[in-house]
Amino acid sequence: MPDAIQQLVTPDGILFMPFLVGIMGSVTFGVVGSYVTVRRISYVAAAIAHSALAGIGAAVFFQHRFGWAWCTPLTGAFVAAILSALIIGRVTLSSEHQGDSVISAVMVIGMAVGLLFLKKTPGYFAPMSVLFGDILLVSKRDLWIIGGLNAATIACGVLYYRKLLAVCFDEEYARLRGVRADLYYLLLLLLTALTVVAMMQIVGIIMVIALLTLPAMTALLLVRKLWHCMIVSGGLCALFVSAGLAGSYQTDMPSGPMIVMMAGSVFLLAAGAVKIFPVARQG
């Protein structure tokens, strides 16, 4: 494995840029993923991730059709993800019983729109690289953009920690205390959207859900506090990304699925170990 590790940590290595993005993203996955898991909105997060394909497809089409160089797939994904988050948020807040249907509709319509745009774009564009990630597409420019998105997401997640904790724990009580629970729910969805956009190039829009949930689910087996969960799941995510990238290089397999396999295996092992050896985290 030394060659793979060298590729990871050496600035000239082909895995160095994705490794940097992965480490940056791990902090974001730790913070936002913890909120998503405890608030139980992973299905909403999946819908936002899938609907980003609409933006990617539209951006590629407009770039080709009108020559808009600024209209990159990342830009398109950003717009689509934010829009889906707002639509889902508004509908689920005003009409809870329709929530599931709307979430499903946003997900499948988003994917369909994206695929139609891609079909209409002449030339070769591999949708699989979007769905499952392509580490070779990460550039230095992307690094800055992703770094900025991650920094904004982490800042919001930390700054509003107490309010988000209160809303995720007992939304009705928070509302009674005068906290604008609806706004914080929308904030959570927007943070999820930013996380999806920032990390989709590493693991793809389908697999990004795994990194939002699996490290946090593993951490929740071990910790008592939400901020502990954020730290532990961030660390686990960094481990999965590093090991998955190195493993994919070594075995010539796609990186996204490799990373997710690492995450899934560790979660299953941890869940099994906790059943056999109950952790005394209850004190």
């Binding site: 405890v38 139980r40 700054l159 509003y160 920690y161 107490r162 309010k163 988000l164 904790l165 209160a166 995720c168 724990f169 007992d170 009580y173 928070a174 205390r177 005068g178 906290v179 929740l220 910790v223 008592r224 506090k225 939400l226 502990h228 969960c229």
Partner: peptide, 23 residues
């Protein structure tokens, strides 16, 4: 929510979360 990672002291402190801008 079952298994929510929050301690007793943190639950009590959520009772005054509205008193500051960022909680």
């Amino acid at each position: 929510r079952p298994g929510f990672p929050i301690t007793v002291r943190e639950v009590v402190l959520t009772g005054c979360v509205e008193q500051h801008r960022f909680g």
